[in-house]
């Protein structure tokens, strides 16, 4: 019976948490429409999320591109179609891997730090202090991060596309000895704007989702250092699972309703 009790509590708590998160997201939408916008803060966060992540995102997606290149050439060689690996790498990178890998890297690098920063402010009463000074923590701390993320995530994803495709090219052409000209020709023939646009739209949604989840968990942190650690872990786990679920839903919508 204990197992049913545990499952029941888990379901109830998940439902309650999800509902609170939906209310929080509704509040975010409301405040996003209310000026003034804190451009200095937004720029500061774009620098942290975007510019300071260029190397790590490039490294991750370059490696991912190389791995996909190796695997695709290896499989397609059996069919004698290894030159099509270029198209395979580019389409899979732009539609799936670039936005997802970028999002996972940014969850680890920035999402966790958002939760930890806001969470430690919460447990040291700095959030309460902000409220006593008639400043909405959501408006001051969350909204600039949201704007920065929905700008930086797509920008980094665009970069990840280029770097990932280059990684695939290096692995396919220089390691697996695929003909460079045919590789590039098939890639440019098969890849179109839809592939890139769907990936960028996904990155935009991931940026919003990750920032909302991480800030939400920061703001509801309780207890001391242990509470901050627990919130950060929860935020990272939930963000990661959420982007994968969101990715599936968006892919289904793009394919089924828009034929993309």
């Amino acid at each position: 019976m204990k197992i049913f009790d545990t499952i029941g509590k888990f379901v109830v708590n998940t439902y309650k948490d999800t509902w609170k998160l939906i209310v929080f997201v509704k509040e975010i939408f409301k405040w996003m429409l209310v000026p003034p916008y804190r451009f200095n803060q937004i720029a500061e966060h774009i620098e942290k999320i975007g510019i300071q992540s260029i190397i790590i995102v490039s490294l991750s997606t370059f490696t991912t591109g190389m791995i996909i290149g190796l695997q695709l050439v290896n499989i397609m060689r059996l069919l004698g179609a290894q030159t099509f690996a270029g198209a395979g790498v580019a389409i899979s990178m732009s539609r799936e891997f670039a936005p997802v890998i970028t999002a996972i890297v940014l969850i680890a690098k920035n999402g966790s730090s958002m939760t930890a920063e806001i969470g430690s402010m919460k447990v040291t009463e700095q959030i309460d202090a902000m409220e006593t000074m008639a400043v909405s923590p959501l408006r001051y701390l969350v909204i600039p991060r949201i704007f920065a993320s929905i700008i930086a995530f797509p920008a980094l994803t665009a970069l990840a596309n280029v770097v990932g495709v280059f990684g695939g090219y290096v692995a396919s052409v220089y390691v697996m000895q695929v003909n460079a000209v045919f590789y590039s020709k098939t890639m440019f023939f098969w890849v179109d704007a839809d592939d890139i646009v769907t990936g960028i739209i996904k990155a935009f949604v991931f940026g919003f989702l990750i920032t909302a989840i991480c800030c939400y968990h920061g703001l509801k942190t309780k207890g001391g250092a242990k509470g901050v650690g627990e919130s950060t872990t929860r935020a990272v786990v939930i963000s990661t699972v959420s982007i994968l679920i969101a990715d599936y839903i968006m892919t289904y919508i793009f394919i089924t309703f828009f034929g993309l």
């Binding site: 040291t124 202090a129 006593t132």
Partner: peptide, 19 residues
């Protein structure tokens, strides 16, 4: 509520300065 709070200052036990 934010508007009313403009009339009230609050000194926290640990000051709660923004670190």
């Amino acid at each position: 509520l934010l508007a009313v709070r403009k009339n009230i200052g609050y000194l926290f036990q640990d000051a709660a300065l923004f670190d």
